[in-house]
Design a protein around this nucleic acid. Structure first.
Lengths: 126, 126
DNA sequence: TAAATTGGATTACACTTGTAGGACGGTGGG
DNA sequence: CCCACCGTCCTACAAGTGTAATCCAATTTA
């Protein structure tokens, strides 16, 4: 699981999330898992899988009769990357600005607020 | 200032941020403002400006000898859009998951933590 | 005033992305 | 045993992006 430069596009993320949830999977399984929330032709999903393999984000086990695919990049790393580039683009890199804006703009339930407060507290005491 | 579908690319965001900061500006001014943090040819910046005009994200005042450009889309709306699509891609739309992850992963100073707590509090009491 | 620079419009060009389709060979059902 | 369908690999193709260059007219500069 390398960090690598995982440049994963929007559509590809959907496939990756499936594999991060459960792996290895055959392409049929992936198609099935994705199918529920996206209306793509299986061909499209195959394309995405191939691209991800070529990019080095997915690995393939060719021993099995039907190839099995599994992630080669770490989900956490990809999330961090994606997050950083988002924050950089929109907030000029200011995490603080971003969090503040979020808390202000988005509707969060009271329970969630309490949990976030708890998290902040834990962080503060560390 | 319409909300419109502001599909602004990474590079274009840099230009928009300049104009949201101060407008209207001539292209020379924009080039100058961008120049400091990006190493683009002025030509590149002109291209971006034109695209933004074509997209309807920027307006032009052609009365002045040198055209003056200004935003037609609201910054806040664009941020919200961008944010939503980020959260949807990475966190399946869960704002809460996202905030929690942030607080966990990123290094935030103690002062910032306190301010965030203050914000959360205000939100909670509202 | 002639030359050099700049601004705006148009064009360029390779790469990525979304979204498949076609060819070919293996597998499963009748 | 033969055919239809699925998985793989390759190809396609238009739109969007990053990153300019060209052409022409206006403007600044020597």
């Amino acid at each position: 699981m390398k960090k690598a430069d995982c440049k994963i596009s929007d559509a590809e993320w959907i496939v990756m999330k499936v594999l991060w949830e459960e792996a290895p999977l055959t392409s049929a399984k992936i198609v099935e898992a994705v199918g529920s929330n996206k209306n793509w032709s299986p061909k499209t999903i195959h394309s995405l899988i191939s691209r991800l393999v070529k990019k080095g984000a997915l690995g393939v086990n060719k021993e099995t009769p039907l190839y099995e695919y599994y992630p080669l990049v770490d989900k956490r790393d990809c999330i961090l990357d994606e997050t950083r580039s988002f924050i950089h683009k929109v907030y000029d890199g200011s995490i603080h600005l971003m969090l503040a804006n979020f808390i202000k703009e988005e509707k969060i339930s009271e329970k969630e607020i309490e949990e976030l407060e708890r998290l902040l507290n834990k962080k503060n005491n560390k």
